[in-house]
Design a protein around this nucleic acid. Structure first.
Length: 640
RNA sequence: GCCCGUGUAGCUCAGUCGGCAGAGCACUUCCUUGGUAAGGAAGAGGCCGUCGGUUCGAUUCCGACCGCGGGCUCCA
């Protein structure tokens, strides 16, 4: 006898375990059952005693089940339409689901409506979804008979002797579940995309066809999701970049993955850089500048030529010496450190640089500003004593939260990546160093009040790290800040400081980037703001718009006055366009302040102020407008 | 690199079932002196991604190559 809380909130006592019948009797539906925090099928036998909770489709925990079942409905439809198709895997993912297939002949996007139609039929048929347990040999025989080679491979990796399958109508699939009780519950779904995907993500194995889709419990939630996708598409920095004349990437003339910052993009970059430099000086960093190339021996010493050669460009011959374009700034910063004998009193030393590096990326992975071949890291290396490390990490967190906050990023997720405890031999540095480093990272996070997820085995070989992910205005997650211990290079470069005991000691080095790279960060910023930058970042902060030709000199005077006050202002006087045209152009360019100059304004030393938001502030004295804009700029706030 | 899609004017895209290439925006000139999201007219602009094949004839059909877009484990 089990007590079951139903989706309606009522509690019933289910005898004999037939929950489905009870639900039907009461006119309720359930997606799954939660027992001891685990999701189970509604059809599963209930525990002999204790409590269970049947959850409805709209329960947040049910969405994965819904989407997983949707992927089965997809696979079912595909097997009906394309005899001979082979099934691979079909999980629920963060925003929906996918299923990987090997089709007998290539399909394309135009096939998706047909498949979706077939899915709708399967939903309308409301087929019961039942779990079938087979002994291993029967499971293997079934899959072999169906020629499901990929499934057989998966079967080989399942340790159990009892193998779980799910059956709906004539379709049966190896699957661990759980699933909805019937196909009729997958009402609101859509197929979105088609893409290639390697079997098991391995480039040496078969290329499969992946079909992406998503499903929601209600029509409204699905519609909202599609709207969100549309909004994200409109904010795509690769669309907005050319549209707002911010940057270009010209493969034919310049090269793939190499970014040209146009005047307007460069204006934003200048603001980012200025702010960044000021804050770093304030936080006790010293700015350095280092060259773009360096001798091969530098990269031999650092180990890059051993571990990272594939990511580096070919060497160039300069007077018989090999030089490489730099993929990282660290060796140069270390070289500066080593120009003196350092005392424990000198530490911590914090070298910061907006350092431009070049890394080889395969052409297929290049993506707008987010994945490029030449980029400027907002890099810094903190060289310190072991007893200083915790405070240094804390100071890094303070600085990055302050800087990211200024760009409107206030939601964070933090990941702490540490060694794989099973394979400590894959990592450089002593156990004591790793433990102390992790302790100081955790303590710094705790002092900052930042919850984090600990990821064992995610650390790079040379040290543990903290990665900060921010959520943008569309709640999308981007990894920006990384704070990494480096046990490798201090060793390789034989870095030292003289302690109070008069002996040489090995310093700790922390490598950190807060924004990641200026290129990538700019791309994220464009999408975060949808191109409508706050006043302090806006490439053109104010457009001065004359109503008629008569006001052109006045408009130019106003713009000059604003520029003298340090505001990026332009008088739009090169062409005699109607005011309507000028306003529209300023709106499209997302200029925050539009200052209209007509005869009335020109007569009184005023402008009529229109904000990008559409708000009309009416007549304002020019001096007051300057004060307002300066205020918005210096506060680096979002309001205009 | 690999799978699917795609490549026509500076930009966004039509189009040619094989017969001298089209629109809107932008650009140039002229008219218009216009008060809060596009005033009107005319003009200029193309090796239809590149190379090869089929053909009397290819931007169109076929092949190769190049570029671009989406994607390439969030694991039955």
């Amino acid at each position: 006898m089990a007590n079951v809380i139903l989706p309606s909130g009522d509690t019933v006592v289910v005898d004999g375990g037939d929950l489905l019948a009870v639900l039907k009797e009461r006119g309720e539906t359930a997606a799954a059952v939660v027992v001891d925090g685990q999701l189970h099928d509604v059809r599963d036998p209930l525990p002999s005693r204790g409590d269970a909770r049947a959850i409805g489709l709209d329960d947040p925990a049910a969405i994965e089940v819904l989407r997983h079942t949707a992927s089965h409905v997809l696979a079912h439809a595909v097997t009906r339409l394309y005899p001979g198709v082979k099934l691979a895997i079909g999980p629920a993912i963060a925003e929906g689901f996918y299923y990987d297939f090997r089709f007998p002949a290539p399909i394309n996007r135009d096939d998706l409506p047909r498949i979706a139609e077939e899915m709708a039929k399967i939903v309308a048929e409301d087929l019961p979804i039942e779990r079938v347990w087979l002994p291993r040999n029967k499971a293997a025989a079934l899959l072999a008979e169906k020629g499901e080679a990929y499934k057989l491979e998966l079967l080989g990796e399942i340790p159990d002797e009892r193998i779980s399958f799910y059956r709906q109508g004539e379709f049966i699939d190896l699957c661990r579940g759980p699933h909805l009780p019937s196909t009729g519950l997958v009402q609101h779904f859509v197929l979105l995309d088609l893409a290639g995907a390697y079997w098991r993500g391995d480039a040496t194995r078969d290329m499969l066809t992946r079909i992406y889709g998503t499903a929601f419990p209600t029509r409204e939630a699905l519609a909202e999701h599609l709207k969100w996708r549309e909004e994200a598409r409109k904010r795509d920095h690769r669309l907005l970049g050319p549209e707002l004349d911010l940057f270009s990437i010209q493969n034919e003339t310049v090269g793939a993955g190499l970014v040209l910052w146009h005047p307007k993009g460069a204006a934003v970059r200048h603001e980012i850089e200025t702010f960044w430099k000021e804050e770093h000086y304030r936080a006790g960093y010293q700015l350095v500048a280092t060259p773009h190339i360096g001798r091969a021996r530098l990269w031999e010493t650092s180990g890059h030529l051993d571990f990272y050669k594939d990511g580096m460009y070919s060497p160039m011959d300069i007077e018989g010496q090999e030089f490489y374009l730099k993929p990282m700034n660290c060796p140069f910063h270390i070289a500066i450190y080593k120009t003196h004998t350092r005392s424990y009193r000198d530490l911590p030393i914090r070298y910061a640089e907006l350092g431009t590096v070049y890394r080889f990326e395969r052409s297929g992975v290049l993506h707008g500003l987010l994945r490029v071949r030449g980029f400027t890291q907002d890099d810094a290396h903190i060289i310190c004593r072991p007893d200083q490390i915790e405070d240094e990490v804390l100071a890094c967190l303070d600085l990055t939260l302050h800087i990211l906050g200024a760009f409107g990023f206030r939601d964070y997720k933090v990941a702490l990546s540490v060694r794989d405890p099973e394979h400590t031999e894959h990592y450089i540095g002593s156990d004591a160093m790793w433990e102390e480093a992790e302790r100081s990272l955790v303590r710094a996070l705790e002092r900052k009040g930042l919850p984090h997820i600990r990821m064992a085995g995610e650390a790079v070989f040379y040290g543990p790290k903290i990665d900060l992910h921010v959520l943008d205005s569309l709640k999308r997650s981007w990894q920006l800040t990384t704070i990494q211990f480096d046990f490798n290079e201090p060793e390789r470069f034989d870095m030292a400081y003289i302690g109070d005991d008069g002996q040489a000691h090995r310093p700790y080095m922390v490598h950190r980037a807060l924004l990641g790279s200026l290129e990538r960060f700019f791309g994220i910023l464009i999408e975060h703001y949808g191109g409508a930058f706050p006043a302090w970042l806006a490439p053109v902060q104010a457009a001065v718009l004359p109503v008629t030709e008569a006001e052109i000199p006045y408009a130019e005077g106003v713009a000059a006055e604003l520029r003298a006050a340090g505001i990026r202002a332009e008088a739009w006087t090169k062409e005699r366009k109607t005011l309507r045209w000028l306003i529209r152009e300023a709106q499209v360019q997302k200029v925050p302040y539009m200052l209209v100059c007509g005869a009335r304004e020109a007569a009184g030393g005023a402008v009529a102020v229109r904000l990008r938001t559409g708000e009309d502030l009416g007549h304002q004295r020019v001096a007051d407008v300057v004060t307002r804009i300066k205020g918005a700029v210096t506060s680096r706030g979002a309001s205009l």
